[in-house]
Nucleic acid binder design. Structure first.
Lengths: 127, 127
DNA sequence: TTAGTATATAATCATTCGCTTATATAATCA
DNA sequence: TGATTATATAAGCGAATGATTATATACTAA
């Protein structure tokens, strides 16, 4: 496919306020599905379907930890320079995550990079 | 509207290969409707409708000269930095214009910046 | 004035999109 | 084990999208 056509596909996917906000959030940290459900106030299937689209074109990758699925930006994507430059023009969405933490809704999952803290499961919090 | 929502609208509009190519072409030069019709091999109404959408959000502006309407990038657009950074990651489409010139299909219109050469109308060529 | 060229708009239509509800799968917890 | 929690998928539906054809408008040329 022509590079400009590939770029158009990526831009169309980013041209949705929910997905664009998701990507901006993922610029700073990984998030799991239930955090997005909480943040956007949308149904869980709606969130899953947005993430599926982002995953299908390789914009995000997933990391299954315990009962959660964490999504993160795929910095190896062929068009990552395009993605990065778009995200860099957007205002930070980090305060949304801070609020989630304050509300005790942030998921803490300790198996990051293979580690596992057996005595820290459940509704734990990060940030 | 939130900045991220405005950005999503712009990105959605850029997320179409025809419009994205139009914008990349306009990065270097202004073009008129019939040139786009020739370049994309699409119907004239289809081209007009794409340009209308770009104009409605202020991404392009128009400049009527004689019987033609030339479109050009609106560098004053609030989100021009976003637009510019996206376009900068795309491959040049200039050879399309060169080919158009070779085919004698490029429109030469001399009323640029108020000038008017009365003895140079019709199917003239630029480039 | 009339014919031709350039452009815009309206109506239509098939496709895509984004959501919903219902349901399936997998992991955890009691 | 059975209940709960997290996630994914399928079906359905209304709205948006991108093209087409038909038509209207405006400028140019003879």
């Amino acid at each position: 496919m022509l590079p400009i056509e590939e770029a158009a596909i990526i831009l169309k996917l980013m041209g949705d306020k929910t997905r664009l906000t998701m990507l901006k959030l993922l610029e700073g940290d990984s998030c799991c599905v239930c955090e997005f459900v909480e943040l956007f106030g949308m149904s869980q299937p709606a969130i899953s379907q947005h993430l599926r689209k982002l995953k299908d074109v390789g914009l995000v990758k997933e990391d299954k930890r315990q009962q959660w699925v964490f999504y993160y930006l795929n910095e190896k994507h062929e068009l990552y320079p395009l993605i990065k430059c778009v995200l860099s023009t957007l205002p930070s969405q980090h305060e949304k995550l801070l609020q989630l933490t304050k509300d005790g809704k942030r998921i803490e999952c300790c198996s990051i990079k293979g580690e596992n803290s057996q005595d820290d499961k459940g509704t734990n919090v990060r940030d």
